[in-house]
Write a protein that binds this DNA or RNA. Structure first.
Length: 273
DNA sequence: AAGCTGTCCTGAAAGC
DNA sequence: TGCTTTCAGGACAGCT
């Protein structure tokens, strides 16, 4: 579930509380995430100081002198800051203690992963990071860039936006929302979209992600301290999950369809091929 | 190369 | 009511 905005808000939430602190302990409770969770990890990190927390796509990077901890929240993962000693609940897989702060990973569906990458070039060459595409909030992500990158692609634009080898961080929700804002039909073959339409799409993606980050930021205290929620922020979606309901712009019924293994939502009136 | 499908996992919601 | 089925989601593996 967490897409780029949720991961970014998580990063901004925990970084001020943890950066500069030393790991004082921790434990693992489950080995079986998407990739096996290293049981010795908390012991390995104990005594090391967290230098910074970065993000690449949907990956969080907790940087230490000796390497980085690569955290992916999958679709049901969340990181929370709790007082040490807080009893664990079902699906709490990893604790890292930083003195009087406890960082706890919960992930019911266990699609997430936590991997230790030792220092070196391994960061850039690590298979999980090497193939990642452009950051959608970076200056390099321009209409012209996306136009050039899609010329030889016949895939419909919606699944292409979700392909993190092309652009990172855009999941099912924000792909549909961005295409609505840009008034582009999700079925349109990417390579047939003119530059002019990417001049709408790229800002639409930024606006969608920025709005979600802002929404998360405003509920940030709840997010890190409360027990509830999947980490998703309450937002008014234009199309996502609104099959059969009226379009907020034109009033026509929102439709859905399957693309790949995912449901896409769109307004056939507002969005054109 | 590009583009499909299958797979992992659990809980909520829908269907009978 | 209670059981069964479906769906949701990210991203890799393994096909064609």
């Amino acid at each position: 579930m967490p897409e780029l905005p949720e991961v970014e808000v998580t990063r901004r939430s925990i970084a001020p509380e943890l950066v500069g602190r030393r790991v004082s302990g921790g434990m693992t409770r489950t080995a079986k995430l998407r990739y096996p969770l290293w049981p010795e990890l908390p012991r390995h990190l104990t005594g090391k100081t967290l230098l910074s927390i970065g993000r690449r796509g949907k990956y969080l990077l907790l940087d230490f002198d000796a390497g980085s901890l690569l955290v992916h929240l999958g679709m049901s993962g969340s990181l929370r800051l709790l007082p040490p000693g807080t009893p664990p609940q079902k699906h709490d897989h990893l604790d890292l203690e930083f003195g009087d702060r406890l960082l706890r990973l919960r992930d019911p569906r266990r699609f997430g992963s936590v991997l230790w990458l030792a220092k070196g070039d391994e960061m850039r060459t690590h298979p999980l990071l090497a193939g990642l595409g452009i950051e959608p909030l970076s200056d390099e992500f321009t209409p012209r860039w996306l136009f050039a990158a899609t010329r030889s692609r016949n895939v419909p634009i919606k699944p292409l936006l979700m392909d993190n080898h092309m652009v990172v961080g855009i999941g099912n929700i924000y792909a549909s929302e961005s295409l609505f804002r840009a008034r582009i039909d999700p079925r349109t073959p990417a390579g047939r979209i003119a530059l002019k339409r990417f001049e709408r799409l790229v800002p639409a993606i930024r606006a969608t992600l920025d709005a979600a980050i802002a929404a998360g930021g405003s509920s940030l205290r709840d997010f890190i301290h409360a027990d509830g929620g999947s980490g998703y922020f309450q937002q008014q979606y234009y199309v996502y999950g609104r099959t059969g309901e009226p379009c907020r712009v034109c009033g026509k019924t929102i439709r859905s369809l399957r693309q790949g293994q995912r449901t896409s939502f769109f307004c056939a009136q507002c969005q054109r091929p």
